[in-house]
């Protein structure tokens, strides 16, 4: 018990002293996950919105597949991205394996279905309200996508944050394609796993505390935004 409390105090010391190794890891984690979520949002939001308003044969199957992809096992994504980026893989020539870019790619693959599916749900609900009015204004279904995306911006921010929460907490895929190389691809989750196995609990605990802080903040922001959305919808009803 004595040991744990000492480790805990050391962890607090690491955070407060501005330990350069610790903050390097935190900043790399934020950089990788934020970039991954921005890319995933740029792909997923227009795609999800287009899927919400488009009507085509097999649409239902696409929606079911998309929802299923939200639960992609990260290790399998890691394996697939690893195979693509490995020396003999189709993208091997780019030499991206064990770089932060490889980790971004893995997180984009994981997060894009989440953002696309959440966007699809959000936009479909808003479209049910807007469709007739926008058609009356002479706006075609596909042309209504930018209007719907803009007007759903608050709900879409929660989709963005949900994606970020998933990305920043991800460990399996990034350890496979990033390799957990010190000062290169070591992020919070992979460092916690490594340092815990090495018995260096202070660094693991410090990173764990920061990760929890980020995750809780993201969840809090999502919950703070959600009631506003609901209230605005209720006023509208």
């Amino acid at each position: 018990m004595q040991d744990f409390s000492q480790e805990f105090m050391s962890a607090i010391g690491l955070i407060l002293s501005g330990d350069s190794d610790l903050w390097e890891i935190v900043l790399l984690s934020l950089r990788v996950s934020l970039l991954a979520v921005v890319i995933a949002a740029l792909i997923g939001m227009p795609l999800g919105a287009a899927l919400a308003v488009a009507r085509f044969p097999g649409r239902r199957a696409v929606v079911i597949l998309l929802n299923a992809l939200m639960g992609l096992p990260p290790v399998v994504v890691g394996l697939l991205v690893y195979l693509c980026l490995s020396r003999s893989g189709p993208l091997g020539v780019l030499q991206l394996l064990y770089t932060p870019t490889a980790m971004i790619i893995a997180q984009v693959v994981l997060v894009t279905p989440i953002i696309t599916a959440l966007t699809r749900q959000t936009i479909e609900t808003l479209d049910a309200e807007y469709a007739e009015q926008l058609r009356s204004l002479g706006i075609s279904r596909l042309a209504s996508v930018p209007t719907l995306l803009w007007d759903a911006r608050l709900a879409l921010l929660t989709a963005f944050l949900a994606g970020f929460g998933r990305a920043i907490a991800e460990v399996g895929a990034v350890i496979m394609v990033g390799g957990n190389i010190n000062h290169v691809t070591r992020v919070m989750t992979t460092t916690i796993a490594l340092e815990t196995s090495k018995g260096n609990l202070a660094l693991a605990l410090a990173l764990g505390a920061i990760l929890i802080f980020i995750a809780v903040t993201v969840t809090a922001v999502v919950s703070l935004l959600a009631p506003q959305e609901r209230a605005s919808e209720m006023r509208h009803a």
Binding site: Y130, L137, T147, D151, S232, H236
Partner: peptide, 14 residues
């Protein structure tokens, strides 16, 4: 384009 419609429940943009 030369017509407009107002619905029973106003649909206002957010």
């Amino acid at each position: 384009a030369r017509q407009a419609m107002v619905f029973q429940k106003p649909v206002l943009l957010r």
